[in-house]
Write a protein that binds this DNA or RNA. Sequence first.
RNA 1: GCCGACGUGGUCUAACGGGCAAAGCCACUGGUCUUAGAAACCAGUUAUUGCGAGUUCGAAUCUCGCCGUCGGUACCA
Length: 887
Amino acid sequence: MEEKYFAEAIEEKWQKIWAEKGTFHAEINDSKPKFYALEMLPYPSGNLHMGHVRNYSIGDALAWYKRLKGFNVMHPIGWDSFGQPAEQAAIKRGVNPRDWTESNIAHMNGQLQRLGLSYDWRRQMFAHRPDYYKFDQWFFLKMYEMGLAYKKATQVNWCDTCQTTLSNEQASGGICWRCGNPTTKKEIEQWFLRITQYADQLLDDMAEIEAGWAEKVLKRQRDWIGRSTGAFVEFKVQHSDEKIRVFTTRIDTIYGANCIVVAAEHPFIEANSDKLSSEVLAKIAEIKAEKAKATDHEAEVEKDGIDTGFKAINPFSGEEIPIWVANYVLIEYGTGAVMSVPAHDERDFEFAKKYDLPIRQVISEPHMEHAHHTMQVLALEQAFSDYGVLVHSDYWNGKTSEVAKKEMTEWAEKHRFGEAATTYRLRDWGISRQRFWGAPIPIVYCEKCGTVPVKYENLPVELPQDMITEGTGTSPLDNDKDFVNTTCPNCGEPAKRETDTMDTFVDSCWYYFRYIDNQNSEMPFDPKIAEYWTPVDQYIGGDDHAVMHLIYTRFWSKVMRDIGLVKFNEPVKRLLTQGMVIGETFFDEIPNPDDADGKGKRVYFPPNQVSVKRDEKGRIISAENAEGKQLKSAIERMSKSKGNGVDPDEMVEIYGADAARMFVLFAAPAENELVWKEEGVEGTKRFLQRVWRFVWRWKSVISGQWSTSMVHEFSAEAKKLRRKTHQTIQRIQDNFESLQFNTPVAALMELSNAIHEFKVEPETANESDIYAIREAVESLVLMLAPFAPHTAEELYSQLVGNENGILANGGQFPEFSAELAKEDEIEIPVQINGKLRSKVLASPEADNKTLETLALADSKVKEYTDGKEIVKVIVVPKRLVNIVVKG
RNA sequence: GCCGACGUGGUCUAACGGGCAAAGCCACUGGUCUUAGAAACCAGUUAUUGCGAGUUCGAAUCUCGCCGUCGGUACCA
């Protein structure tokens, strides 16, 4: 140990020792409880960014804590290494995507190693390697057999920038998840996975994980799945055999229907286009054209429509109502047709107002007298969409919405024009991608036998070594005749391979099951091994994948359960969603005449080209660029274009991995945004140096073996230090259990401060002082390991006198003694009428009576109570006394 | 527009399911040391907990309204 703290030297040293000793290797061990700590795997873009550092620092802290708590910890990492950037790099720079990917992985692997993360590196998986994607294909074949994978031609989301199709999840809001450009629709044949078959399970099994998942993530999944229960009702078309089927959740409002509204793409329109007037046809064309346009998602689209001239019959009332076509009815949802009930639906209300259609109230607030109903209708200025009591509904009058819904649905069923129904917003998962860099879909097309799955023994269907052409909207693999031409697995005749590859979200569905058995060449993993290690105990990552990765992987697990690979419903018990890393940005705002709101276009300047003036409190008062132009500042997500990114390598070089990691954990709660502040890292580095110097100064006195039985008498100061030590242990343990990583760092700093305040010199310290110091320092060092493992290891080696490492030495998270943590005497605030007036000293065990007596006897209290009537005295044990007086 | 979360010193943040508002890092001020600076050490400044009301003996904490910030979402019948 050197007197000065050289981060780089000790970090290299311990990383070498860990690697040599296999310190973090995880093997099945039935004598210990297991803990599976998992972080979202990175895409090998070439460089680690601070978001990764944050994600992995959190996971590593937890993994260390659990190890110190006696758990057998699985903590792996791998690579989400299929995907578009590799392909784009290949096109742009003429490199092989495989080489590009492998070299990025090698580089990022080095960056991760340099951070000293406690992974079992042997367990890595690489999505782009055949030994992994073989099992993507294996799963595909299983799903094909189960009827969960099927092909159909349909309108799919298309991103013109990325030149590929996207799943609904990836094109949420009409925006490509990858490039942010608007998507269009394209008719294309593609493979789907029947995730909708699991829609109910995906919703209902949420009950199992509610306790461990952020509510906002579950809510987004719930909304995405969008289950709604109601009924289908058929409306006969007047003078025709045709029927229009609508979906409604409010069959109880059917007497208020003023028309049927269908989407422009509805089959009824297409079937009857010859009977429609040119005016109607023009309007339909207009609506379709509007829809095809890239929409501005801020703006609300005005309702637009036209009466088709057709009539429909309300099956309940027999009333004849017009059939309209309008832009606000979506062909994708329900049946593409609705019954319009303006009195009880906001959208229908708006539509009826615009076209002056009748608005008839059929639901009344429960407490309304019958006589008032008519008035209410006249006064209706907005839709009443709550449940209530039926009015103007013949036989059903007086029934509540709840009852009417049930009975009217039954009545419709009985008379064969309707039935109870549940619809979902969730669609099947389209997984075909017209890209090269993904897992080939293991299907062969034979002229004689049709669509034939590849045989299991012939997996993997390997990608060609070289990429043939760039993406042009068709699959690059089409151009590789050696790949395309094959023989039929069934009849042996010449046949052609499927040339689309799988969505890369398939890879990340099950990667964490591969870690536990990554050498298996027969199966994705051995179910017996999975039984020990899975489900995942704690998953950590960003919440941007809430409706993509996190919903797909839940679906995949349920399929794996149905195959018999696992026995549980939910693969992840607890999910922690960490916030973004953000930084200060400086920009000049150039007015944009096109924007009515006056929002200008921002031109960013990197912080190192900006001179900032701050006032004496540290607030920014001015910022100017090299030319002396005044700039505005903000705090925004780190990105290259904004110039506010921080290079992890640079941070590690300057401050060391320990200080950088510790700062990331300390600066904010894990779920919050984290503002990167260089000065903050210096602070954590200073803290580590303080601890280091202290151990250096004391090591000759406190190192080596020590016995707990020697000492009995402690000075008041030593007792105080011991109390702080044990209180800190308790606090940090509680913090870890509730996934707080910022507060334990503060607690460690407090303990360190307490050690410094213990004014004893090593040369003159007596046995009990040394004991108290040793206890405090050893606890501090052990609890430091999750945050600054290299520093903790080095300091620990000084305490125990060997370099085997904390875990090999049996180092454990210290146990606290409630007895020692307890205060001898506590200050009890005394309030008079709720205002703090005095404080009294009492033992923590003092009962209410004692506290009351002490408080009333206090001289300052007497000043306030003398001559006044004491109304009552409230005593909160260990907390306070409040005396209520009058007069 | 709708839904949700959050507003605590200059800043980031603590404070268990009402009970002394500040424990920690940073920033700032002064000092010791030093040729000077940095580092280190010591000492210190900084609040009507966004605003307004309610419940309560007592509210940062619970309830309601408003303001603001940030996310999510878009006619899902």
